[in-house]
Amino acid sequence: MELLAFGKTGWGDELFYATLMTIAVSITAMLIGFFFALIFTPLKLSKYKSLNLIGNFYTTVIRGVPELLVIYLFFFGGSGAIMYVASIFGYFEYIEINAFITGSVAIGIISGAYSTEVFRGAIQSIDKGQFEAAKVLGINKFTQFYKIILPQMLRLAIPNLSNVWQITLKDTSLISVTGLVEIMRQSYIAAGSTRDPLFFYSFAAILYLMLTYISMKIINKLEIKYSRGY
């Protein structure tokens, strides 16, 4: 138990902050994922082949390659790309992108691919008549998507989005390879330093179980709330 003490001698406070970090990265990544999904879902549903291709490329590649590889690629390629863009604008100094943002975006790209699929499925199950009605009323495509389709879609998507959330939450454990100190990284450091991997990895498992349990409870409440009136 003294291994979990708070303060200088134990790992309790470190693991507590690491848990907060896992939660923060998961939420940020989920939101970034939504942002990606909002861009790629319309592409996937577009009637233009070339736009379809872009949308499909994103979801196929990200869902077909191990998360670990996506994270490595983003970690090593991402900063290089940003610095390359900066150099075009004549900026050659060092640009440091905060580890939290790197991690969240990397997980967000993965999470976004799954969200895109969920949104696509939800939109496709919306009554076709709604699209026609909007067309008849002369509402433009953009408004149609954001004001009519999106709100309905979100309700239909909540059960599947809860799966995406679970995937996202667990994928954050892989971000430990980039050095962001979340639950897995902190347990890794603690296990190395104390030479007690069994204890710390088991404790990490308990922390993840706690997070999945609590988030499931919250999502169930949301589901009940949003299905009111149906």
Partner: peptide, 10 residues
């Protein structure tokens, strides 16, 4: 969030 370090050696 893009912190710029000009003089700090990392």
């Amino acid at each position: 969030i893009c912190n710029v370090y000009a003089d700090k050696v990392r």
